[in-house]
Design a protein around this nucleic acid. Structure first.
Length: 416
DNA sequence: TCTGGGGTCCTAGGACCC
DNA sequence: TCTGGGGTCCTAGGACCC
């Protein structure tokens, strides 16, 4: 028996933990540069604010209904996510952390799912302040569907393929199924498959022939045959990228190089956090897809002489890439740096044989920076090439403090 | 004026090998 | 007329997820 537990309106719920005054109000959390709504409270959803709506398009709603608008605060959400997952891991032996706000759990078949589900929801809420939904089922796909129902009803739910649940499956659009996106659902509907029930009745080999193994697995899972086991051990990441769009377009090469330094710094820090090194960097710059200009996409792939997670090396290559593709006539809207072909940094690679021995006297600057930044907050110490100000070219006008990860912004409680 | 960021998996087709 | 068969590896691109 699988369960999918999912945090309700996660980013909004994180903000509400430290801002109880936001409870019962319409609240939205914006993407970087305060661009679009990426999380909405139930009240905001009821106002008709769609997921991903650009802020400038919903200004009237925000004003009329006094919607609370917040910039995203991923430091907070990441930490709150860890707390939720820790609580779940204390309560259940088999937990797969699936995303920042979701986890699959596996239980014995004989479990009383209604009781266990409510107990877990209450416990998570009590320990972290985060409300959740929980759906149970004999497969991950069915547990996901049960979670949708749980979200709608506000209680733990269960779905399997037996006739008792056929009405529910008939009332669930095929597009709501985990793994069936916009393209597949359009195509399936052309084949006469509109609901989860319709897809459940499809022939798995037909699904494979006409689509692929993923759709075949979904058909089998809808019928209660589990094809996707729980992944208990988190696999090493295969790629890490840092990409950001600019608040206003950039035509200055030095500004782009400064951005490359910032993203390169963040990228190398992330590589060290996950004890990985990269052998290949992919750097790109593009213009805005929304201004009606001819699309521009400059890119460079850099194969490094040896695997590295060294900040200085990564920044140097990223800046060289910018230097080589920069075109002064282009209004750059976004650049990105991606590390692929990652290696375990704790294992000596093929190149280690030829690596120059590190001088014992040379201080490990990256290690010192990591320690200081971890203790005093991101960006406290950084390479000069990243520029002086911390907030830069990325607008965040409504950002809340990093309540749980920065001593300076710790909430103070005073008795009256 | 203004439109996110970060991932994964699968498949087809080409290059290359014996 | 008629030109093998079987395999691996890599890459680009598509689709999906949160």
């Amino acid at each position: 028996m699988f369960a999918l537990i999912d945090c309700n309106n996660f980013f909004v719920s994180c903000e509400r933990v430290f801002r109880p005054d936001l409870e019962h109000k319409p609240v939205i959390v914006l993407s970087s540069n305060d661009g679009c709504a990426i999380a909405r409270s139930n009240q905001a959803k009821l106002l008709g604010i769609p997921m991903g709506a650009p802020l400038f398009e919903i200004r009237h709603l925000v004003k009329t209904y006094n919607v609370e608008v917040l910039s995203c605060n991923f430091e907070l959400y990441g930490d709150m996510s860890l707390r939720v997952m820790n609580v779940l891991q204390q309560q259940c032996e088999k937990v797969e952390v699936y995303s920042i706000d979701e986890a699959f759990l596996q239980f014995d078949k004989s479990i009383n799912w209604a009781e266990e589900g409510e107990r877990l929801r209450k416990h998570v809420l009590q320990c972290t302040g985060i409300p959740t939904s929980i759906g149970f089922g004999p497969t991950k796909t069915l547990a996901k569907l049960a979670n949708l129902q749980s979200k709608a009803l506000g209680i733990a739910c269960y779905i399997d393929s037996t006739p008792v649940h056929h009405d529910t499956l008939k009332n669930t659009s095929v597009s709501k199924i985990w793994g069936i996106g916009a393209n597949l659902s359009k195509s399936l509907k052309q084949q006469g498959i509109y609901s989860a029930y319709d897809l459940m009745l499809a022939d798995p080999s037909w699904a494979r022939r006409n689509y692929n193994v993923i759709v075949e697995r979904i058909v089998r899972e809808l019928n209660g045959h589990s094809c996707m086991p729980l992944t208990l051990i988190q696999e090493a990441k295969k790629s890490i990228q840092i990409t950001r769009s600019f608040f206003e377009h950039v035509k200055d090469k030095d500004v782009l190089k400064q951005a490359a330094a910032r993203y390169g710094f963040r990228l190398s820090t992330k590589l060290r956090e996950s004890s990985q090194k990269t052998t290949t960097l992919f750097v790109y710059g593009r213009n805005s897809p929304f201004r009606g200009e001819t699309p521009v996409f400059h890119q460079r792939t850099i194969v490094l002489p040896e695997p590295t997670n060294d900040t200085a090396v990564i920044i140097q290559h990223a800046q060289q890439a910018i230097e080589s593709f920069f075109d002064p006539t282009v209004a750059y809207h976004k650049i990105g740096i991606m590390a692929v072909n990652l290696r375990d940094a704790t294992q000596p690679g093929a190149h280690a044989l030829f690596e120059a021995p590190k001088s014992a006297k040379k201080p490990d600057i990256d290690k010192v920076m990591d320690t200081l930044n971890k203790r005093f907050g991101l960006g406290t110490v950084r390479p000069l090439s990243c520029g002086e100000s911390i907030e830069w070219m990325n607008k965040r006008d409504h950002k809340t403090p990093a309540y749980t990860t920065n001593w300076k912004t710790l909430v103070q409680v005073k008795a009256k």
